[in-house]
């Protein structure tokens, strides 16, 4: 950018301009190096006794029982949803008085397909007691167990999941994030006979990002349909 005859005056102005922009930049950033605030620091600075909203009314209606961990002195400080009151075919003793022959085809339980770690490892009798039906569920040791505390049974093998479930990384909390902690039992989400989640269609179809629908083509499907 040369202006004949004006070289040095032009140069001076350019220097001034540079100086000014430099000053502006310094002014913006301040004397200390800027760094983003960290969540971890916020947490460390403010964590403490919790005054969450009152949620008693949200959990009041839930059928729940305090979680227990055998061998521990203290009871757990959270609750699980109960199971017994949701089942029709339990306890076994309400139908079965005599021991069941497991080789026969299951009549009343025809709909149960066992797909849990393969039949050489898991059979009906791994978790149920077909002998005297004192209890519906048994530990691997044969000791009786209430359906409400089924997590104890699952945790015999799935101890890592049990640990995470107790802490809150596995499973699902019910109703409220604050106040009394009530969580789903293992069987609240998993079918114990087929614990893997099934394949199915998503309940919602996302609109493709690169597809711009003309307004009139957008339909308004009924509620509850697959393409909600």
């Amino acid at each position: 950018m040369a202006f004949p005859g004006n070289r040095d005056r032009h140069g001076r102005h350019l220097t001034r301009m540079c100086l000014l922009s430099l000053l502006m930049l310094v002014g913006c950033s301040g004397p200390k190096p800027p760094h983003p605030a960290r969540v971890a620091d916020t947490i460390a600075a403010h964590e403490g006794p919790v005054q969450g909203p009152d949620t008693a009314h949200l959990t009041a209606e839930l059928n729940r029982v305090r979680a227990e961990f055998p061998g521990r002195l203290q009871a757990a400080d959270f609750f699980v949803e109960t199971r017994v009151n949701q089942l029709k075919q339990a306890p076994c003793a309400q139908c079965h008085a005599a021991p069941v022959d497991l080789d026969k085809a299951p009549k009343a339980h025809w709909d149960i397909q066992l797909e849990h770690a393969g039949n050489h490892m898991m059979q009906c009798s791994t978790c149920h007691d077909p002998g005297d039906h004192k209890s519906s569920l048994i530990f691997l040791s044969g000791a009786a167990l209430s359906m409400d505390h089924v997590y104890q049974q699952c945790g015999q093998c799935h101890f890592e999941q049990l640990r995470d479930w107790e802490g809150g990384a596995h499973g699902q909390r019910v109703a409220a994030w604050s106040g009394e902690r009530v969580v789903r039992n293992c069987t609240g989400c998993h079918d114990p006979h087929q614990p893997a989640f099934p394949k199915r269609w998503p309940v919602h179809a996302a609109r493709p990002a690169d597809e711009t629908l003309p307004i009139q083509e957008i339909s308004h499907p009924e509620e509850g349909s697959a393409h909600d």
Partner: peptide, 9 residues
């Protein structure tokens, strides 16, 4: 503007 008004060009 620069050359006209300031540099007297």
């Amino acid at each position: 503007v620069l050359p006209t008004y300031i540099l007297d060009d």
